[in-house]
Amino acid sequence: MTEALMIKQLNYRRNQKQLLTDVNLTLPQGQIVGLLGANGAGKTTLMRLIAGSAVNFRGSIQVGDAGDAVARKAQVSFSGMIDGFNPNWRVGQVAETLAELLADFRGEDFYQLCDLLGLDQKQRIKRLSKGNQRKLRLAVTLSRRAQLYLLDEPFDGIDVMTRKAMLNSILKWAPELATLVISDHHVTDIEQLLDQVVVIKARTIAAQAQADDIRAQGQSVEQYFESFFGGDLDD
């Protein structure tokens, strides 16, 4: 089976601080993976490195067959892509521009996702509520035909109904062979979605396990995750 993501000996340092140390991680195709960790553990940093937002690292990151940064960007759809759009723009304008810039961006999918999530395409970005801004992130990310999707804390601060709508769209829109990595520290939100769990602790990968194996041991994913922290989730 081709690997969706292969990271070897990844080290990343910034502001005189080691942010990731000796990260080794391999993810297969077609799985939904929970990247779980406490605040400041390095989840967002790891996603930024995979996506290509952060560049100055040691080690190697490969997405599918793509090793160099440009090829990797063509294979990864990151929820941070929306950062940098003019807040005065309307939702529809964002999609139009991305469709011009990204060969794999499906405008039709975006509009259908907007309908599914109840997102008004004529609304200006700055006028969107917190929940709707999260939905926009999700819609933009899932509208690409990528090998690897990176969703960075998509449900943070989102109410239950919005969360359900977003979870449904993830299940419906994630391409079968694609791998989805969802980072979160509220495990209950995503527990039922996950095929695999990766725990990041103290700036490195602390564990990687199949969700079914965890459940077979009589544990919930949340209990499994919490066992690494002993109740203290501030890293």
Binding site: T44, R48, S53, A54, V55, N56, G80, I82, D83, G84, P87, I125, L128, S129, K130, G131, N132, Q133, R134, R137, D152, E153, D156, G157
Partner: peptide
């Protein structure tokens, strides 16, 4: 740009 400049890590817009 290629080797050192990274994007700003914005507070999530929401």
């Amino acid at each position: 740009l290629a080797h050192w400049v990274e994007t700003k890590q914005l507070q999530q817009m929401a």
